[in-house]
Design a binder for these strands. Sequence first.
DNA 1: GTCTATAAAGCGATAGAC
DNA 2: GTCTATCGCTTTATAGAC
Lengths: 185, 185
Amino acid sequence: MVKQVAERADLLPKLAQLFRSHGYEGTSLAAIAAATGLGKGSLYHFFPRGKPEMAQAVLDETAAWFARAVLGPLRHPGPPRVAIREMCRALEAHHNGGTQICAFALFAADETQTLFAAPLRTHFQQWIEALARVLVLAGRGAAAARTEAFDAVACIQGAIILARAAEDGRVFAGAVARLEARLCV
Amino acid sequence: MVKQVAERADLLPKLAQLFRSHGYEGTSLAAIAAATGLGKGSLYHFFPRGKPEMAQAVLDETAAWFARAVLGPLRHPGPPRVAIREMCRALEAHHNGGTQICAFALFAADETQTLFAAPLRTHFQQWIEALARVLVLAGRGAAAARTEAFDAVACIQGAIILARAAEDGRVFAGAVARLEARLCV
DNA sequence: GTCTATAAAGCGATAGAC
DNA sequence: GTCTATCGCTTTATAGAC
């Protein structure tokens, strides 16, 4: 067997894929070892506190990507429709055409929420607030912008659930397209 | 210790509560035994095929309740706004003010989906179709009714995720109220 | 119908060689 | 930095007494 030298950052995509597919409880260290090609000892070298630290690292990485790909455009001065379009394109990419939920939503869905309460709250709060600000720029009143932003984020999260239940990613694409049209009015 | 004589039906509420809180993988037989007060042997008496059968029974029970409380009103001839109101009240009750997701949505979110693909697909498909028919009665065109029904169900599912992430059930109540107003136009 | 005891496998985590 | 081996515990599931 070839001895591989890995970096912590290299492991994150595979960790994210596992946690997003099987959830926190459903992802075992054996599965992580198999997917990464590393032994458990190596995994504990990179993540001394074990599975909770691995999941936290996935959330951190996802949050960093999200700040770059979604929050950045939403906060950048410019036409609202451009910001909204960038958000929608980033979401389509991140959710693989509606087949894959994101770790934040999956962890929020069950009691895993209690383990990562603070980052979960922050993630969705920042998203809704940033989108609401864009909607204000697009002409909405403050209160209407807040509720419309909430409903938009909710609709995205729910569309992933529905696309997965239907085993048909096209319904997610349709939902994103309608959302983009609705927000850009 | 008192020897209790249980019925399978008595176990379902507690099973549902456990699966809805911890997910399929996160719910252990030990936790089920503790919550029901039964030994593992008794559990296998009621569910000879073990945990998968328990989860299936929860889905069956939930589907039966849903047919009664949501699909029934939606399919019953009568004013659309009444059907929609009954749906919304039933959802508020079932989701405990947005604090608890339903088993169908939770199982669809991760790879548990592969174990229960057929009932998950059927559940959301029936819901969307029944709601779309009501929206047609309320005056929408067929295509618009279909997409509006999809978005409504998605918004509900997503609102539960967001309410759990925010640890604030009021945002779910608000989402349901807006949904009801939107659908009743 | 319920229980206890237990099997066999898997779990997260650790130790220590290289 | 990676590995193998292993610990202690939990898991699902079964056996068999009552």
